[in-house]
Amino acid sequence: MNKKYLLLAGIAISLGIGILFMPEKNTEKQVQPEQLLAAINDPSRFLSTDDITDRLVKKDPALMLIDVRPATQFSAFSIPGAVNFPIDSLLTASIQDMLNQKEMDKVFFSSSDLTSDQAWIICKRMGLKRIYVLEGGVNKWFNTIVKAVKPAETAPAEAMELYQFRMAACQHFFGSREMGANPVATAEKKEVRVVKKASGDKTGGGC
């Protein structure tokens, strides 16, 4: 009798071990509509351009910048270090695997907030964690970081520090301010991230 039970227990546990090797299902993790509504109304998914820039300069390994614009726009100009997952290819298996990295902060951006927010909602519904939207998109990033406006002499010290940080970051990305001023001209330069001049200023401009 005892041997029979041992056999049964063995069968049960080996079936259990079989279960352990089943792949995880995505459909199971759909977010409930109420939770999705609450998440959409929560503005904490928006990250500022300065925040992203700081993390880019510091080479944060957990940061994954995702450009959801079409490939042509991405190759014309994008934020340095970004990857291109056009929104219509977001549901393909390979990109899903890339997005499903739990230890990465996934930050979507497009020209403005619009397409990137759509991408965010799609991923939120699939239950992905640590996903964000770059506020204002690549346009705002360009206007605030690359074309940073020097504040007036009377401006508070914080404004001046912010400006210096932006300048330094821009030099970090593009080598010099003049080159960064024209997005089309920088397109080819994108991969070249050689200038490390910003490293000295970083502490001064850090957020």
């Binding site: 546990i13 259990g16 279960i19 352990l20 089943m22 199971e28």
Partner: peptide, 28 residues
């Protein structure tokens, strides 16, 4: 809503199912 127990616990479904089987055998 129709939430699953392993979602509440933040576990993988397969791991929870395996542990449940082991727990059942242990209880028997």
């Amino acid at each position: 809503g129709g939430v699953k127990i392993y979602e509440l616990l933040g576990m993988r479904e397969t791991v929870f199912a395996f542990l449940l089987i082991v727990a059942a055998v242990g209880m028997f």
